[in-house]
Amino acid sequence: MMHSFSEILAEAQKGERRIMVTPNPQSKRVLTAVNDARASGLIAPVLVGNRNLIEKSLFALGLNTEGCRIINEYDPLQALKKSIEITDRGEADMIFQGDANIREFLDAVTDEKSGIAEVGDLSYSSLFELPSENRVSFFTDTYIQEFPDLKQKVNILTNAISLANVIGIEKPKIAALSLVEMINLNAQSSLDAAILSKMSERGQLDAIIDGPLDVDCASSFERARRKGLNSSVSGKVDIYLLHDIESGFSTVEVFTFLGGAGTAGALMGSKIPVVLNLRFEPTDSILIDIALANLRIQEGILL
């Protein structure tokens, strides 16, 4: 089991280099991330875009084109299209959003012709480190599915369980979060949580799910005890399932910006790893995102 981002990186470095295609790399953030991943031995970069501009931007950062294959394409939209085609032809192992617009990028990835992913299958899991407990934990869905129904929540959890498996957590402990630990007939989150919990009890999901739980009961055995609750996941949660995007997205933002936690993450549910460039992840987290993508390929855990 990997207990920290550095262990995830070290484990990924044991595997072979993977070909990662990036459309229109321009920014310091993206070029640094690509270069770090190459220098760490994780990837062989394929950069698609204006060759002169890419070279100039790299040199300006004190970097060079060592180990990079550059495919010249002046038009940014064409560069994105070409990047998708390269992955479709099997010439790349993974694709990085780079500086492409998130909406255009996800549209391209989920385009019927590309076959990289279907919108409904996708979800994002965010990881954060808990150094004091020497482990990592996940939030999901923090970016993609907005107001998932129960079926979609099962899919989101299946994705997150796969990612937990990638870092060596078998049968993860999951807290399906809600307002309180009681079922509130007016709160859909609590109804969904109760059903998911029952499904895991019946072995329908390869995880130990408890819910509804509020964050207090989920995160602390002591707080749960003060509420008179005895939950098998209290204080040991690997995956927190958030009810909707309003809670998922903002929870990660609070962790990153108010807590100073450098969260990393993975887009799950695609046929090849798709690495996103999200504002709530600091630049050095992209290296961990790429390491997770490498591990997914290494362990054959894809869609």
Partner: peptide
């Protein structure tokens, strides 16, 4: 409470 020791 999600991470009283590490971040909050």
């Amino acid at each position: 409470s999600l991470s009283a020791e590490d971040y909050f």
